[in-house]
Nucleic acid binder design. Structure first.
Lengths: 240, 240
DNA sequence: CGGGGTGTTGACCACCTTCAAGCCTCGTGG
DNA sequence: CCACGAGGCTTGAAGGTGGTCAACACCCCG
Protein backbone atom coordinates (compact mmCIF):
# COMPACT_ATOMS: atom_id res chain seq x y z
CA UNK A 1 0.00 0.00 0.00
CA UNK A 2 2.87 2.35 0.75
CA UNK A 3 5.50 1.08 -1.61
CA UNK A 4 8.96 2.43 -1.12
CA UNK A 5 9.91 4.75 -3.94
CA UNK A 6 13.15 6.28 -5.18
CA UNK A 7 14.16 8.86 -7.74
CA UNK A 8 15.81 7.22 -10.67
CA UNK A 9 17.78 7.78 -13.86
CA UNK A 10 17.98 5.73 -17.03
CA UNK A 11 21.01 7.61 -18.23
CA UNK A 12 23.36 5.75 -15.93
CA UNK A 13 21.46 2.47 -15.70
CA UNK A 14 23.44 -0.62 -16.52
CA UNK A 15 20.36 -2.31 -17.97
CA UNK A 16 20.02 0.39 -20.59
CA UNK A 17 20.58 -1.87 -23.59
CA UNK A 18 18.07 -4.43 -22.43
CA UNK A 19 15.45 -2.02 -21.25
CA UNK A 20 13.88 1.11 -22.49
CA UNK A 21 16.02 3.62 -24.31
CA UNK A 22 18.21 2.59 -27.25
CA UNK A 23 20.91 4.54 -29.02
CA UNK A 24 19.80 7.93 -27.83
CA UNK A 25 21.67 11.18 -27.45
CA UNK A 26 22.52 12.41 -23.98
CA UNK A 27 19.84 15.02 -24.27
CA UNK A 28 17.24 12.47 -25.24
CA UNK A 29 18.31 10.22 -22.39
CA UNK A 30 17.79 13.05 -19.95
CA UNK A 31 14.29 13.55 -21.26
CA UNK A 32 13.56 9.87 -20.74
CA UNK A 33 14.77 10.25 -17.18
CA UNK A 34 11.94 12.68 -16.67
CA UNK A 35 9.41 10.11 -17.76
CA UNK A 36 10.69 7.40 -15.47
CA UNK A 37 9.35 8.93 -12.35
CA UNK A 38 10.32 6.68 -9.50
CA UNK A 39 11.36 3.23 -8.50
CA UNK A 40 9.28 0.92 -6.47
CA UNK A 41 10.21 -2.11 -4.39
CA UNK A 42 8.10 -5.23 -4.26
CA UNK A 43 8.72 -7.92 -1.69
CA UNK A 44 8.75 -11.57 -2.60
CA UNK A 45 5.18 -12.73 -2.88
CA UNK A 46 3.89 -9.18 -3.27
CA UNK A 47 2.07 -7.91 -6.30
CA UNK A 48 3.14 -5.09 -8.58
CA UNK A 49 -0.38 -4.87 -9.95
CA UNK A 50 -3.46 -7.03 -9.93
CA UNK A 51 -6.20 -7.95 -12.35
CA UNK A 52 -8.79 -5.17 -12.35
CA UNK A 53 -6.54 -2.43 -11.01
CA UNK A 54 -6.40 0.83 -12.92
CA UNK A 55 -3.59 0.97 -15.45
CA UNK A 56 -1.30 3.96 -15.11
CA UNK A 57 2.22 2.84 -15.82
CA UNK A 58 4.51 0.38 -17.45
CA UNK A 59 7.21 -1.11 -15.26
CA UNK A 60 10.81 -1.88 -16.14
CA UNK A 61 12.28 -4.54 -13.90
CA UNK A 62 15.57 -3.48 -12.35
CA UNK A 63 16.12 -6.42 -10.06
CA UNK A 64 14.15 -9.48 -9.14
CA UNK A 65 11.89 -11.87 -10.90
CA UNK A 66 8.17 -11.76 -11.65
CA UNK A 67 5.43 -13.97 -12.91
CA UNK A 68 2.32 -12.67 -14.63
CA UNK A 69 -0.81 -14.76 -14.40
CA UNK A 70 -4.48 -14.64 -15.15
CA UNK A 71 -7.12 -16.13 -12.89
CA UNK A 72 -10.70 -16.72 -14.00
CA UNK A 73 -13.83 -16.74 -11.86
CA UNK A 74 -14.10 -20.49 -12.19
CA UNK A 75 -10.72 -20.96 -10.57
CA UNK A 76 -8.70 -21.57 -13.68
CA UNK A 77 -5.22 -20.18 -13.44
CA UNK A 78 -2.55 -19.61 -16.04
CA UNK A 79 0.94 -18.19 -15.72
CA UNK A 80 1.40 -16.14 -18.88
CA UNK A 81 5.06 -15.36 -18.43
CA UNK A 82 8.12 -15.00 -16.24
CA UNK A 83 9.96 -11.69 -16.37
CA UNK A 84 13.45 -10.74 -15.29
CA UNK A 85 15.68 -7.67 -15.10
CA UNK A 86 15.44 -5.37 -18.10
CA UNK A 87 12.02 -6.60 -19.18
CA UNK A 88 8.87 -4.53 -19.30
CA UNK A 89 5.56 -5.52 -17.73
CA UNK A 90 2.13 -3.98 -17.70
CA UNK A 91 1.42 -3.87 -21.45
CA UNK A 92 -1.79 -5.82 -20.90
CA UNK A 93 -3.34 -2.82 -19.16
CA UNK A 94 -3.22 -0.39 -22.06
CA UNK A 95 -6.22 -1.62 -24.01
CA UNK A 96 -8.84 -1.24 -21.30
CA UNK A 97 -7.12 1.14 -18.91
CA UNK A 98 -7.00 -1.53 -16.28
CA UNK A 99 -4.82 -4.56 -15.82
CA UNK A 100 -6.06 -7.96 -16.88
CA UNK A 101 -3.51 -10.05 -15.05
CA UNK A 102 -1.54 -10.15 -11.81
CA UNK A 103 2.17 -9.43 -11.61
CA UNK A 104 3.68 -11.24 -8.64
CA UNK A 105 7.27 -10.91 -7.46
CA UNK A 106 8.92 -14.33 -7.08
CA UNK A 107 11.82 -12.72 -5.25
CA UNK A 108 12.38 -9.30 -3.77
CA UNK A 109 12.28 -6.93 -6.70
CA UNK A 110 12.69 -3.35 -7.73
CA UNK A 111 11.03 -1.77 -10.75
CA UNK A 112 11.16 1.57 -12.53
CA UNK A 113 7.72 3.12 -12.76
CA UNK A 114 7.01 4.69 -16.15
CA UNK A 115 3.69 6.58 -16.22
CA UNK A 116 2.20 5.68 -19.55
CA UNK A 117 0.81 9.08 -20.42
CA UNK A 118 4.27 10.56 -19.95
CA UNK A 119 5.66 7.81 -22.12
CA UNK A 120 3.16 8.54 -24.88
CA UNK A 121 3.86 12.23 -24.63
CA UNK A 122 7.57 11.72 -24.87
CA UNK A 123 7.41 9.21 -27.68
CA UNK A 124 5.58 11.81 -29.74
CA UNK A 125 8.73 13.87 -29.53
CA UNK A 126 11.49 11.29 -29.44
CA UNK A 127 11.11 9.10 -32.50
CA UNK A 128 13.53 6.47 -31.25
CA UNK A 129 11.49 6.06 -28.10
CA UNK A 130 8.27 5.74 -30.05
CA UNK A 131 9.84 3.08 -32.19
CA UNK A 132 11.16 1.27 -29.17
CA UNK A 133 7.77 1.18 -27.46
CA UNK A 134 6.29 -0.34 -30.59
CA UNK A 135 9.04 -2.92 -30.74
CA UNK A 136 8.56 -3.90 -27.13
CA UNK A 137 4.89 -4.55 -27.70
CA UNK A 138 5.55 -6.41 -30.93
CA UNK A 139 8.19 -8.50 -29.19
CA UNK A 140 5.68 -9.51 -26.57
CA UNK A 141 3.24 -10.54 -29.30
CA UNK A 142 5.89 -12.65 -31.00
CA UNK A 143 6.95 -14.19 -27.70
CA UNK A 144 3.38 -15.23 -27.07
CA UNK A 145 3.21 -16.80 -30.51
CA UNK A 146 6.08 -18.97 -29.39
CA UNK A 147 4.23 -19.94 -26.24
CA UNK A 148 1.17 -20.82 -28.31
CA UNK A 149 3.34 -23.07 -30.45
CA UNK A 150 4.71 -24.68 -27.33
CA UNK A 151 1.30 -25.19 -25.72
CA UNK A 152 -0.38 -26.23 -28.93
CA UNK A 153 2.06 -28.68 -30.40
CA UNK A 154 4.75 -29.80 -27.96
CA UNK A 155 4.86 -32.74 -25.61
CA UNK A 156 5.90 -32.48 -21.98
CA UNK A 157 9.61 -33.11 -22.56
CA UNK A 158 9.74 -30.68 -25.42
CA UNK A 159 7.99 -28.00 -23.40
CA UNK A 160 10.32 -28.30 -20.45
CA UNK A 161 13.40 -28.39 -22.66
CA UNK A 162 12.25 -25.27 -24.50
CA UNK A 163 11.51 -23.61 -21.19
CA UNK A 164 14.96 -24.32 -19.75
CA UNK A 165 16.73 -23.19 -22.91
CA UNK A 166 14.74 -19.98 -23.01
CA UNK A 167 15.43 -19.20 -19.35
CA UNK A 168 19.14 -19.88 -19.55
CA UNK A 169 19.46 -17.89 -22.75
CA UNK A 170 17.83 -14.85 -21.18
CA UNK A 171 19.96 -15.21 -18.08
CA UNK A 172 23.07 -15.51 -20.21
CA UNK A 173 22.18 -12.23 -21.94
CA UNK A 174 22.32 -10.71 -18.46
CA UNK A 175 25.75 -12.05 -17.70
CA UNK A 176 24.86 -15.26 -15.93
CA UNK A 177 26.03 -18.75 -16.70
CA UNK A 178 24.97 -20.58 -19.84
CA UNK A 179 24.68 -23.83 -18.00
CA UNK A 180 23.57 -23.10 -14.48
CA UNK A 181 20.43 -21.49 -13.23
CA UNK A 182 18.30 -21.10 -10.16
CA UNK A 183 14.59 -21.48 -10.69
CA UNK A 184 12.70 -18.75 -8.92
CA UNK A 185 9.35 -20.46 -9.38
CA UNK A 186 7.78 -23.64 -8.04
CA UNK A 187 7.10 -26.76 -10.10
CA UNK A 188 3.46 -25.81 -10.02
CA UNK A 189 4.17 -22.39 -11.56
CA UNK A 190 6.34 -23.96 -14.23
CA UNK A 191 3.53 -26.39 -14.91
CA UNK A 192 0.95 -23.67 -15.14
CA UNK A 193 3.10 -21.81 -17.65
CA UNK A 194 3.73 -24.95 -19.71
CA UNK A 195 0.20 -26.33 -19.52
CA UNK A 196 1.30 -29.31 -17.41
CA UNK A 197 0.61 -30.53 -13.90
CA UNK A 198 3.35 -30.16 -11.32
CA UNK A 199 3.77 -33.94 -11.13
CA UNK A 200 4.50 -34.06 -14.84
CA UNK A 201 7.05 -31.27 -14.49
CA UNK A 202 8.73 -33.15 -11.66
CA UNK A 203 8.73 -36.41 -13.59
CA UNK A 204 10.17 -34.76 -16.66
CA UNK A 205 12.95 -33.19 -14.61
CA UNK A 206 13.70 -36.64 -13.23
CA UNK A 207 13.80 -38.10 -16.72
CA UNK A 208 16.27 -35.46 -17.85
CA UNK A 209 18.41 -36.27 -14.83
CA UNK A 210 18.29 -40.00 -15.65
CA UNK A 211 19.35 -39.17 -19.19
CA UNK A 212 22.27 -37.13 -17.84
CA UNK A 213 21.00 -34.03 -19.61
CA UNK A 214 20.74 -31.94 -16.46
CA UNK A 215 21.49 -32.06 -12.77
CA UNK A 216 18.84 -30.90 -10.36
CA UNK A 217 19.20 -30.07 -6.70
CA UNK A 218 16.03 -28.40 -5.52
CA UNK A 219 15.70 -25.28 -7.62
CA UNK A 220 19.29 -25.34 -8.76
CA UNK A 221 19.62 -26.70 -12.28
CA UNK A 222 22.83 -27.40 -14.12
CA UNK A 223 22.61 -28.13 -17.82
CA UNK A 224 25.05 -30.88 -18.76
CA UNK A 225 24.09 -31.27 -22.40
CA UNK A 226 22.61 -28.25 -24.11
CA UNK A 227 22.55 -29.97 -27.49
CA UNK A 228 20.45 -32.77 -26.10
CA UNK A 229 17.93 -30.21 -24.93
CA UNK A 230 17.94 -28.56 -28.34
CA UNK A 231 17.40 -31.91 -30.01
CA UNK A 232 14.46 -32.61 -27.76
CA UNK A 233 12.86 -29.33 -28.82
CA UNK A 234 13.63 -29.62 -32.51
CA UNK A 235 14.16 -33.14 -33.70
CA UNK A 236 12.03 -35.29 -31.51
CA UNK A 237 8.89 -34.60 -33.44
CA UNK A 238 10.56 -35.04 -36.82
CA UNK A 239 9.31 -38.62 -36.64
CA UNK A 240 6.57 -37.59 -39.02
CA UNK B 1 3.18 -10.75 -57.10
CA UNK B 2 1.16 -8.02 -58.74
CA UNK B 3 -1.59 -7.51 -56.22
CA UNK B 4 -4.45 -5.38 -57.34
CA UNK B 5 -4.47 -2.10 -55.52
CA UNK B 6 -7.03 0.68 -55.04
CA UNK B 7 -7.05 4.12 -53.56
CA UNK B 8 -8.95 4.16 -50.35
CA UNK B 9 -10.46 6.34 -47.65
CA UNK B 10 -11.10 5.63 -43.99
CA UNK B 11 -13.35 8.65 -43.65
CA UNK B 12 -16.26 6.92 -45.33
CA UNK B 13 -15.47 3.35 -44.34
CA UNK B 14 -18.26 1.48 -42.62
CA UNK B 15 -15.78 -0.47 -40.55
CA UNK B 16 -14.49 2.71 -38.97
CA UNK B 17 -15.55 1.90 -35.42
CA UNK B 18 -14.01 -1.55 -35.52
CA UNK B 19 -10.84 -0.61 -37.30
CA UNK B 20 -8.30 2.13 -37.09
CA UNK B 21 -9.53 5.61 -36.34
CA UNK B 22 -11.69 6.33 -33.33
CA UNK B 23 -13.60 9.50 -32.48
CA UNK B 24 -11.56 11.78 -34.66
CA UNK B 25 -12.39 15.10 -36.20
CA UNK B 26 -13.01 15.32 -39.94
CA UNK B 27 -9.65 16.92 -40.39
CA UNK B 28 -7.89 14.18 -38.50
CA UNK B 29 -9.74 11.55 -40.47
CA UNK B 30 -8.52 13.07 -43.68
CA UNK B 31 -4.98 12.88 -42.43
CA UNK B 32 -5.43 9.23 -41.65
CA UNK B 33 -6.66 8.72 -45.19
CA UNK B 34 -3.25 9.86 -46.33
CA UNK B 35 -1.58 7.15 -44.30
CA UNK B 36 -3.74 4.36 -45.61
CA UNK B 37 -2.14 4.23 -48.99
CA UNK B 38 -3.94 1.60 -50.98
CA UNK B 39 -6.06 -1.49 -50.82
CA UNK B 40 -4.91 -4.88 -51.83
CA UNK B 41 -6.83 -7.97 -52.84
CA UNK B 42 -5.80 -11.44 -51.80
CA UNK B 43 -7.38 -14.50 -53.36
CA UNK B 44 -8.48 -17.44 -51.26
CA UNK B 45 -5.41 -19.48 -50.42
CA UNK B 46 -3.09 -16.58 -51.18
CA UNK B 47 -0.77 -14.99 -48.63
CA UNK B 48 -0.80 -11.40 -47.52
CA UNK B 49 2.69 -11.81 -46.12
CA UNK B 50 4.95 -14.69 -45.24
CA UNK B 51 7.40 -15.54 -42.52
CA UNK B 52 10.71 -13.86 -43.29
CA UNK B 53 9.36 -11.16 -45.60
CA UNK B 54 10.32 -7.59 -44.90
CA UNK B 55 7.85 -5.74 -42.73
CA UNK B 56 6.56 -2.50 -44.15
CA UNK B 57 2.91 -2.18 -43.31
CA UNK B 58 0.07 -3.12 -41.08
CA UNK B 59 -3.06 -4.35 -42.79
CA UNK B 60 -6.67 -3.64 -41.90
CA UNK B 61 -9.02 -6.30 -43.19
CA UNK B 62 -11.90 -4.84 -45.18
CA UNK B 63 -13.45 -8.06 -46.37
CA UNK B 64 -12.57 -11.71 -46.11
CA UNK B 65 -11.07 -13.94 -43.52
CA UNK B 66 -7.46 -14.74 -42.66
CA UNK B 67 -5.47 -17.13 -40.58
CA UNK B 68 -2.02 -16.35 -39.23
CA UNK B 69 0.28 -19.25 -38.58
CA UNK B 70 3.86 -20.02 -37.71
CA UNK B 71 5.79 -22.91 -39.19
CA UNK B 72 9.07 -24.17 -37.78
CA UNK B 73 11.91 -25.86 -39.62
CA UNK B 74 11.06 -29.18 -38.04
CA UNK B 75 7.60 -29.09 -39.56
CA UNK B 76 5.66 -27.98 -36.56
CA UNK B 77 2.76 -25.77 -37.44
CA UNK B 78 0.56 -23.56 -35.33
CA UNK B 79 -2.34 -21.32 -36.28
CA UNK B 80 -1.97 -18.30 -34.02
CA UNK B 81 -5.24 -16.63 -34.92
CA UNK B 82 -8.16 -16.09 -37.24
CA UNK B 83 -8.88 -12.54 -38.34
CA UNK B 84 -11.96 -10.99 -39.85
CA UNK B 85 -13.14 -7.63 -41.18
CA UNK B 86 -12.03 -4.65 -39.12
CA UNK B 87 -9.12 -6.44 -37.50
CA UNK B 88 -5.47 -5.52 -37.91
CA UNK B 89 -2.73 -7.94 -38.88
CA UNK B 90 1.01 -7.62 -39.24
CA UNK B 91 1.92 -6.51 -35.72
CA UNK B 92 4.36 -9.41 -35.42
CA UNK B 93 6.65 -7.77 -37.98
CA UNK B 94 7.44 -4.60 -36.06
CA UNK B 95 10.02 -5.97 -33.66
CA UNK B 96 12.49 -7.37 -36.19
CA UNK B 97 11.43 -5.51 -39.34
CA UNK B 98 10.37 -8.75 -40.91
CA UNK B 99 7.33 -10.92 -40.45
CA UNK B 100 7.53 -13.97 -38.24
CA UNK B 101 4.35 -15.68 -39.40
CA UNK B 102 2.27 -16.25 -42.52
CA UNK B 103 -1.05 -14.52 -43.16
CA UNK B 104 -3.20 -16.67 -45.43
CA UNK B 105 -6.59 -15.68 -46.84
CA UNK B 106 -9.22 -18.32 -46.12
CA UNK B 107 -11.59 -16.62 -48.54
CA UNK B 108 -11.15 -13.91 -51.12
CA UNK B 109 -10.16 -10.85 -49.16
CA UNK B 110 -9.38 -7.19 -49.40
CA UNK B 111 -7.15 -5.27 -47.01
CA UNK B 112 -6.15 -1.66 -46.47
CA UNK B 113 -2.39 -1.26 -46.57
CA UNK B 114 -1.04 1.06 -43.89
CA UNK B 115 2.68 1.75 -44.26
CA UNK B 116 4.02 1.60 -40.74
CA UNK B 117 6.44 4.51 -41.01
CA UNK B 118 3.57 6.74 -42.12
CA UNK B 119 1.53 5.43 -39.23
CA UNK B 120 4.28 6.25 -36.75
CA UNK B 121 4.74 9.68 -38.27
CA UNK B 122 1.07 10.42 -38.08
CA UNK B 123 0.60 9.08 -34.58
CA UNK B 124 3.26 11.54 -33.40
CA UNK B 125 0.87 14.27 -34.48
CA UNK B 126 -2.54 12.78 -33.84
CA UNK B 127 -2.67 11.74 -30.21
CA UNK B 128 -5.85 9.73 -30.64
CA UNK B 129 -4.21 7.67 -33.34
CA UNK B 130 -1.14 7.05 -31.23
CA UNK B 131 -3.33 5.90 -28.41
CA UNK B 132 -5.29 3.67 -30.73
CA UNK B 133 -2.20 1.97 -32.11
CA UNK B 134 -1.10 1.22 -28.57
CA UNK B 135 -4.50 -0.18 -27.71
CA UNK B 136 -4.55 -2.42 -30.77
CA UNK B 137 -1.22 -3.93 -29.81
CA UNK B 138 -2.23 -4.30 -26.18
CA UNK B 139 -5.49 -5.93 -27.25
CA UNK B 140 -3.56 -8.49 -29.24
CA UNK B 141 -1.41 -9.24 -26.20
CA UNK B 142 -4.48 -9.73 -24.03
CA UNK B 143 -6.15 -11.88 -26.70
CA UNK B 144 -3.11 -14.12 -26.73
CA UNK B 145 -3.26 -14.41 -22.95
CA UNK B 146 -6.72 -15.84 -23.45
CA UNK B 147 -5.43 -18.33 -25.99
CA UNK B 148 -2.69 -19.35 -23.58
CA UNK B 149 -5.32 -19.98 -20.92
CA UNK B 150 -7.29 -22.05 -23.40
CA UNK B 151 -4.30 -24.08 -24.54
CA UNK B 152 -2.85 -24.45 -21.09
CA UNK B 153 -5.83 -25.39 -19.01
CA UNK B 154 -8.87 -26.38 -21.07
CA UNK B 155 -10.04 -29.75 -22.28
CA UNK B 156 -11.15 -30.39 -25.84
CA UNK B 157 -14.83 -29.62 -25.30
CA UNK B 158 -14.03 -26.46 -23.43
CA UNK B 159 -11.66 -25.30 -26.13
CA UNK B 160 -14.12 -25.82 -28.93
CA UNK B 161 -16.95 -24.21 -26.99
CA UNK B 162 -14.79 -21.18 -26.25
CA UNK B 163 -13.75 -21.05 -29.89
CA UNK B 164 -17.33 -21.08 -31.18
CA UNK B 165 -18.48 -18.48 -28.68
CA UNK B 166 -15.59 -16.22 -29.57
CA UNK B 167 -16.22 -16.52 -33.30
CA UNK B 168 -19.94 -15.92 -33.08
CA UNK B 169 -19.45 -12.98 -30.75
CA UNK B 170 -17.06 -11.31 -33.15
CA UNK B 171 -19.35 -12.01 -36.08
CA UNK B 172 -22.27 -10.59 -34.14
CA UNK B 173 -20.32 -7.37 -33.57
CA UNK B 174 -20.18 -7.16 -37.35
CA UNK B 175 -23.91 -7.50 -37.81
CA UNK B 176 -24.15 -11.25 -38.34
CA UNK B 177 -26.31 -13.73 -36.52
CA UNK B 178 -25.67 -14.61 -32.88
CA UNK B 179 -26.49 -18.22 -33.51
CA UNK B 180 -25.43 -19.10 -37.01
CA UNK B 181 -22.02 -19.06 -38.57
CA UNK B 182 -20.04 -20.41 -41.47
CA UNK B 183 -16.61 -21.72 -40.63
CA UNK B 184 -14.06 -20.47 -43.11
CA UNK B 185 -11.39 -22.87 -41.92
CA UNK B 186 -10.97 -26.64 -42.01
CA UNK B 187 -11.18 -28.93 -39.01
CA UNK B 188 -7.44 -29.25 -39.23
CA UNK B 189 -6.96 -25.48 -38.96
CA UNK B 190 -9.35 -25.30 -36.03
CA UNK B 191 -7.40 -28.11 -34.45
CA UNK B 192 -4.09 -26.39 -34.99
CA UNK B 193 -5.41 -23.24 -33.35
CA UNK B 194 -6.87 -25.15 -30.41
CA UNK B 195 -3.96 -27.53 -29.95
CA UNK B 196 -6.04 -30.55 -30.97
CA UNK B 197 -5.97 -33.04 -33.82
CA UNK B 198 -8.59 -32.72 -36.51
CA UNK B 199 -10.21 -35.99 -35.45
CA UNK B 200 -10.71 -34.64 -31.96
CA UNK B 201 -12.28 -31.48 -33.35
CA UNK B 202 -14.62 -33.57 -35.48
CA UNK B 203 -15.52 -35.84 -32.59
CA UNK B 204 -16.20 -32.90 -30.33
CA UNK B 205 -18.47 -31.32 -32.92
CA UNK B 206 -20.33 -34.61 -33.11
CA UNK B 207 -20.68 -34.73 -29.36
CA UNK B 208 -22.15 -31.22 -29.30
CA UNK B 209 -24.59 -32.28 -32.00
CA UNK B 210 -25.58 -35.36 -29.97
CA UNK B 211 -26.13 -33.13 -26.97
CA UNK B 212 -28.35 -30.85 -29.07
CA UNK B 213 -26.07 -27.88 -28.38
CA UNK B 214 -25.36 -27.16 -32.03
CA UNK B 215 -26.33 -28.27 -35.50
CA UNK B 216 -23.57 -28.87 -38.01
CA UNK B 217 -23.85 -29.25 -41.75
CA UNK B 218 -20.38 -29.15 -43.21
CA UNK B 219 -19.01 -25.78 -42.29
CA UNK B 220 -22.38 -24.33 -41.39
CA UNK B 221 -22.90 -24.25 -37.66
CA UNK B 222 -26.07 -23.25 -35.85
CA UNK B 223 -25.88 -22.75 -32.13
CA UNK B 224 -28.99 -24.10 -30.45
CA UNK B 225 -28.00 -23.54 -26.85
CA UNK B 226 -25.57 -20.74 -26.17
CA UNK B 227 -25.86 -21.16 -22.41
CA UNK B 228 -24.82 -24.78 -22.67
CA UNK B 229 -21.68 -23.68 -24.49
CA UNK B 230 -21.00 -21.06 -21.83
CA UNK B 231 -21.43 -23.65 -19.13
CA UNK B 232 -18.99 -25.92 -20.85
CA UNK B 233 -16.39 -23.18 -20.86
CA UNK B 234 -17.01 -21.94 -17.33
CA UNK B 235 -18.52 -24.51 -15.04
CA UNK B 236 -17.25 -27.82 -16.26
CA UNK B 237 -13.96 -27.48 -14.51
CA UNK B 238 -15.51 -26.20 -11.28
CA UNK B 239 -15.37 -29.80 -10.10
CA UNK B 240 -12.37 -28.83 -8.04
C1' DC C 1 11.85 -30.53 17.06
C1' DG C 2 7.99 -30.31 14.51
C1' DG C 3 5.09 -28.49 10.80
C1' DG C 4 3.94 -26.60 6.40
C1' DG C 5 5.09 -25.88 1.97
C1' DT C 6 7.36 -28.09 -1.74
C1' DG C 7 8.95 -31.91 -4.45
C1' DT C 8 9.16 -36.94 -5.80
C1' DT C 9 7.37 -41.25 -7.08
C1' DG C 10 3.97 -44.98 -7.98
C1' DA C 11 -0.45 -46.91 -9.66
C1' DC C 12 -4.32 -46.26 -12.17
C1' DC C 13 -7.21 -44.07 -15.36
C1' DA C 14 -9.10 -40.53 -18.67
C1' DC C 15 -8.49 -38.06 -22.54
C1' DC C 16 -6.62 -37.36 -26.64
C1' DT C 17 -3.90 -39.17 -30.42
C1' DT C 18 -2.86 -42.46 -33.85
C1' DC C 19 -4.00 -45.36 -37.47
C1' DA C 20 -7.26 -46.94 -40.56
C1' DA C 21 -11.37 -47.26 -43.24
C1' DG C 22 -15.00 -45.22 -45.42
C1' DC C 23 -18.12 -41.34 -46.62
C1' DC C 24 -19.44 -36.92 -48.38
C1' DT C 25 -18.96 -32.91 -51.27
C1' DC C 26 -17.41 -30.25 -54.79
C1' DG C 27 -14.95 -29.30 -58.92
C1' DT C 28 -13.04 -30.92 -63.15
C1' DG C 29 -12.76 -33.18 -67.29
C1' DG C 30 -14.42 -36.61 -70.33
C1' DC D 1 -24.39 -34.56 -67.85
C1' DC D 2 -22.17 -37.88 -65.45
C1' DA D 3 -17.95 -39.99 -63.68
C1' DC D 4 -14.20 -39.61 -61.25
C1' DG D 5 -10.85 -38.00 -58.05
C1' DA D 6 -9.06 -35.29 -54.41
C1' DG D 7 -9.66 -33.06 -50.34
C1' DG D 8 -12.16 -32.79 -46.35
C1' DC D 9 -14.82 -34.98 -42.74
C1' DT D 10 -16.53 -38.76 -39.75
C1' DT D 11 -16.17 -42.74 -37.06
C1' DG D 12 -14.08 -46.83 -34.86
C1' DA D 13 -10.47 -49.33 -32.30
C1' DA D 14 -6.24 -49.38 -29.93
C1' DG D 15 -2.52 -47.23 -27.61
C1' DG D 16 0.12 -43.57 -25.28
C1' DT D 17 0.77 -39.41 -22.75
C1' DG D 18 -0.24 -36.88 -19.14
C1' DG D 19 -3.67 -36.31 -15.27
C1' DT D 20 -5.34 -37.78 -10.78
C1' DC D 21 -4.88 -39.51 -6.35
C1' DA D 22 -2.14 -40.91 -2.73
C1' DA D 23 1.89 -41.69 0.05
C1' DC D 24 6.06 -40.17 1.37
C1' DA D 25 10.56 -37.49 1.40
C1' DC D 26 12.75 -33.25 1.85
C1' DC D 27 13.90 -28.68 3.39
C1' DC D 28 13.48 -24.44 5.43
C1' DC D 29 12.09 -21.94 9.51
C1' DG D 30 9.80 -20.88 13.35
Amino acid sequence: MNPQTFKVACSNCNLRELCMPVGLSDEQLQRIDEAVAVRRKVKRGGTLFRNGEAFTSLYAIRTGFFKTCITTEDGRDQVTGFQMAGEIIGLDGIVNDHHSCDAVALEDAEVCVMPFDRLEELSREVTALQHHVHKIMSREIVREHGVMLLLGSMRAEERLAAFLLNLVQRLHARGFSQSELVLRMTREEIGSYLGLKLETVSRTFSKFVDDKIIEVKQRHVRILNTDALRNIVNNQHACH
